[in-house]
Amino acid sequence: MNRLEKANKKLSEFNKIVMGEENVKPEDRKLRAGVDLGTSSIVLSVLDQNDNMIYGAFEYDNAVQDGIVVNFMESVNILRRLKEKAEKQIGQELTTATGAIPPNTGQKSTKVVSNVIEEAGFECTGVVDEPTAAAKFLQIKNGTVVDIGGGTTGITIFKDGKIKKVVDEATGGFHMTLVLGGSYKIPNDEAEKLKRDKAKEKEVFGTIKPVVEKMASIVKKLEPEVEDPVIVVGGATNFEDFVKTFEKELRHKVYKPAYPQFVTPLGIAMFDPKDK
Rank of each mutant, 00 (worst) to 15 (best):
M1N: 10
N2I: 14
N2W: 10
R3K: 15
E5L: 13
A7K: 06
N8E: 01
K9T: 07
L11E: 02
L11V: 03
E13Q: 15
N15Q: 10
I17K: 08
I17D: 07
V18D: 13
M19K: 10
G20V: 02
E22F: 10
K25I: 15
E27V: 08
D28N: 15
R32S: 08
L37D: 03
T39E: 11
I42M: 13
L44I: 02
S45C: 11
V46Y: 00
Q49P: 11
N50M: 13
D51R: 09
D51Q: 13
Y55P: 08
A57C: 03
A57P: 03
F58Y: 12
F58A: 09
D66Y: 04
D66E: 12
G67F: 04
V69A: 02
V69W: 00
V70R: 01
V70F: 02
N71P: 15
M73W: 01
E74I: 12
L79H: 01
R81C: 08
L82Y: 12
K85S: 09
E87T: 08
K88A: 11
K88N: 11
I90W: 06
L94S: 08
A100Y: 07
A100C: 12
P102I: 01
P103W: 04
T105K: 05
G106A: 04
G106S: 07
Q107P: 03
K108L: 10
T110M: 05
K111S: 15
V113W: 03
S114I: 04
I117Q: 06
I117W: 03
G121H: 01
F122H: 00
E123N: 14
E123R: 13
E123K: 13
P131K: 01
P131E: 01
P131L: 02
P131D: 05
T132V: 14
A133P: 05
A135V: 13
F137M: 13
L138F: 13
I140P: 05
V146L: 00
I148Y: 08
G150T: 05
T152E: 00
I155C: 05
T156Y: 04
T156G: 12
I157E: 08
D160F: 11
D160Q: 13
K165A: 12
V166P: 14
V166M: 14
D168N: 14
G172W: 00
F174S: 11
M176H: 05
M176A: 04
L178P: 04
L180M: 02
G181V: 00
Y184E: 11
N188A: 06
A191G: 10
E192I: 05
K193V: 12
K195Y: 11
K195P: 14
K195E: 09
D197H: 07
D197T: 12
K200Q: 14
E201R: 04
E201N: 06
K202V: 13
E203F: 07
V204E: 12
I208C: 00
V211Y: 12
V212Y: 14
I218Y: 06
E223V: 00
E225W: 07
I231E: 01
V233L: 14
T237C: 06
T237W: 04
N238A: 15
N238S: 09
D241E: 13
F242R: 06
K244V: 09
F246R: 03
E247C: 12
K253T: 08
A258C: 04
Y259L: 03
Y259I: 11
Q261F: 00
V263H: 08
L266A: 06
M270W: 08
P273F: 10
K274R: 10
K274G: 06
K276G: 12
